[in-house]
Amino acid sequence: MASVQSEERVDRDAYRRAVGRFATGVAIVTTRLGGTDYAMTVNSFASVSLDPLLALFCVEKIARFHGAVLSAGVWGVSVLRDTAEDASRFFAHRGRPIEGRLKGHPHHHGRLGVALFDDALATVECRTAAVHDGGDHSIVVGEVVAVATPADGSPLLYHEGRYRRLSG
């Protein structure tokens, strides 16, 4: 029988294992500030509302991306194909050099000036509408101002701490 935590504080590792069983898509969120592109891998992107059109993602408060995206007020999301695991790993790694970080990753700048990956399954561009405290993360909610579906294919997934692909 599966174990159940008591009413006491939930163990952080047990929580990570439990929520890790929820498969998520993988995306790269971008912003542009002072002529510099910033990018970060996320699996916390979600649609919020159809009226008005709203989406969200979560960003750790200590990440360089946090200050950049809050200052810029605009951001883009590129939903990754199952062939983009290398890009996902690269943009998930802390301490990447700021300059030239998008070199080698075909992209263009969208309506809001943010980088969007050319081979993404979908792209979404947003203006920040609200930022909410989420513990060690901020929940960034944006008004959707542009969308596109540049490529076909299967999505890159993340489940139980590993990249996965759809089968069949």
Rank of each mutant, 00 (worst) to 15 (best):
A151K: 01
T30P: 14
T31W: 07
S154D: 15
A2K: 15
R94T: 09
R111V: 12
H137E: 15
M40S: 08
A2G: 13
C58G: 08
T41N: 02
E60Y: 06
V42H: 01
G113P: 09
E160P: 10
F57N: 03
R64V: 14
G67T: 10
A14Y: 10
A130P: 04
A120R: 00
A115I: 00
F91I: 02
R165L: 04
T31E: 05
E8S: 14
E8F: 08
R64Q: 10
G110S: 02
R164E: 11
S88H: 07
G20C: 10
P155H: 07
F91T: 00
D51C: 10
R127S: 14
T41V: 06
F117Y: 15
T149S: 13
T83V: 05
G142W: 04
R164I: 06
D37K: 11
L56R: 02
E7Q: 13
I62Q: 11
G104I: 02
P97N: 03
D118Q: 05
D13Q: 13
E8Q: 14
G142M: 00
D11R: 12
A115W: 06
P97W: 03
S47G: 05
N43C: 03
S167P: 14
A92E: 04
G35H: 11
D133P: 11
R12K: 14
G67E: 14
C126P: 04
A18G: 10
F57H: 04
F22I: 07
L70N: 08
R89N: 12
A92I: 02
D152A: 15
L157W: 14
A120V: 01
D13I: 12
T31L: 08
S78G: 04
V141Y: 06
L116I: 01
H93I: 07
L102H: 08
A120E: 01
V59S: 05
H109V: 09
T83F: 07
G100Q: 03
G135S: 13
S47D: 03
V145F: 14
V114L: 04
G25S: 01
P97T: 05
D152E: 15
P52Q: 08
E85C: 06
V114P: 13
F22W: 15
V140H: 01
D82R: 00
L102S: 05
D152Y: 12
H109D: 03
P52I: 09
H132A: 15
V124Q: 05
L53C: 09
M40R: 11
D133T: 08
